[in-house]
């Protein structure tokens, strides 16, 4: 292969567990690095995503910044993959969806015991939370989904290497799981 494929990864409203799971490919990471190079990713600390072949995103969309990052990925990645339960369904953070955002903020910043003169942070630097947490595919088009919480390192390895080889990725028995 003449040129390495560029891959970007990020975590939105996630716990980085999917990234940790990806590291479970262990020494295969070296094989992988012969085929790809990382663009924006927690592994490189590059702040903005350039043109990429694959974008891997864990976590759902819970605030305005998540929307911006997701759009940036969509604009730059030929193939965008939602990885893990939170990206696919909203997951654990979406547990707040049945609560009113206003009462969440009130409880956390105003009425919680021990908070004197509290106020709801309103610095323009801070991203505003959305009223509900959404899965990625409700905000941009997603090409592939890797289920699991987290998906195993083997599943991620199989999926990504299939893609690089130009095959439609298929997670066979034992690799597909939802918990």
């Amino acid at each position: 292969m003449s040129k390495k494929l560029r891959v970007a990864t990020t975590s939105l409203a996630g716990c980085f567990g999917c990234h940790m799971s990806a590291l479970d490919i262990d020494e295969r990471l070296f094989t992988l690095l012969n085929l790809i190079e990382f663009d924006r990713s927690p592994l490189t600390d590059i702040k903005h995503c350039g043109r990429c072949y694959i974008g891997l995103i864990e976590g759902g969309v819970c605030n305005a910044e998540n929307v911006h990052v997701l759009r940036e990925f969509r604009k730059n990645c030929k193939i965008l993959i939602a990885i893990g339960s939170c990206a696919i369904t909203g997951g654990l953070p979406a547990q707040r969806n049945h609560l009113d955002l206003g009462s969440c903020l009130t409880e956390v910043y105003l009425t919680e015991p021990g908070l004197a003169h509290g106020y709801i942070p309103n610095d323009p630097e801070l991203p505003l939370p959305l009223d509900k947490v959404h899965p990625l595919h409700e905000v941009v088009k997603i090409d592939y989904f890797i289920p699991g919480c987290p998906p195993s390192g083997d599943a991620i390895w199989k999926f990504v290497t299939d893609l690089i080889a130009g095959k439609t990725p298929e997670l066979g028995h034992g690799l597909i799981k939802y918990d």
Binding site: A64, V67, D100, L101, G102, L105, T106, I120, P121, N122, P124, E125, P127, L128, P129, L130, D131, K132, H134, H137, E138, V139, V140
Partner: peptide
């Protein structure tokens, strides 16, 4: 297109923080 009104989904947070800047 997104499945919901993105800017509308920030309305509650705008109301709670009193913000109306571009970032909001």
């Amino acid at each position: 297109k997104p499945a919901f009104d993105l800017d509308g989904a920030l309305a509650r947070a705008r109301q709670m923080t009193g913000r109306d800047d571009a970032g909001a």
